[in-house]
């Protein structure tokens, strides 16, 4: 016999944070680690460390994407890596004064979409080294790379081209 009618649950030191009594509101924390694979786009992130921005080019219809895309959205064919020029032009932009929680310590920041010569689509990134009022559509920008790689899309960014 192993039954024990006198069994008591172990008491926990301290208690959960209650922020309101009626209705009863308690504070819960949640955290998780992901082992995230970049899969077929891995080469893009590795090449950023070599100072190269890689888009993709359709082997069949020759459409050139400024982003990694294993397969073409027009014809479904496999693409090949395509090295992008290191200078482009601003297609559109914004300055964010607010944002998601993870980015609040970075505001204000500039987001730009960049067009490249000979490339059919755009690339989105951050622009630094310019004040909000200096940015305009058509402005020339240069591609820069973070030295201490984070293996994130933020390893590439843009600065204004010398006037």
């Amino acid at each position: 016999m192993t039954t024990n009618p006198k069994a008591r649950i172990e008491e926990i030191e301290g208690s959960r944070v209650v922020t309101n009594v009626d209705p009863l509101i308690v504070k819960e924390h949640y955290e998780i680690n992901y082992l995230h694979s970049y899969g077929q786009d891995s080469e893009f992130f590795r090449q950023l460390g070599k100072g190269k921005l890689m888009g993709s080019r359709c082997r069949k219809c020759e459409y050139v994407y400024a982003t990694p895309r294993g397969h073409c959205m027009f014809c479904g064919s496999e693409t090949q890596w395509h090295e992008l020029p290191l200078e482009g032009k601003i297609h559109t932009y914004t300055t964010c004064y607010s944002g998601s929680e993870s980015f609040l310590n970075e505001v204000p920041f500039h987001l730009v979409m960049v067009e490249f010569e000979g490339v059919n689509s755009l690339f989105m990134g951050r622009l630094i080294g310019a004040d909000e009022e200096d940015i305009e559509i058509g402005m020339k920008v240069k591609v820069k790379f973070r030295r201490n790689l984070q293996f994130s899309a933020t390893d590439v960014y843009f600065v204004p081209d010398a006037p």
Partner: peptide, 30 residues
Amino acid sequence: WKGNEFIALASDTDFDYPVGGFYTGYYAMM
């Protein structure tokens, strides 16, 4: 701000979320 983050998870989390992470930013560019 956490709500903005959850909404922004509905953008490509490998390419768009890390640089912008903010839907207002995307719509502002449009």
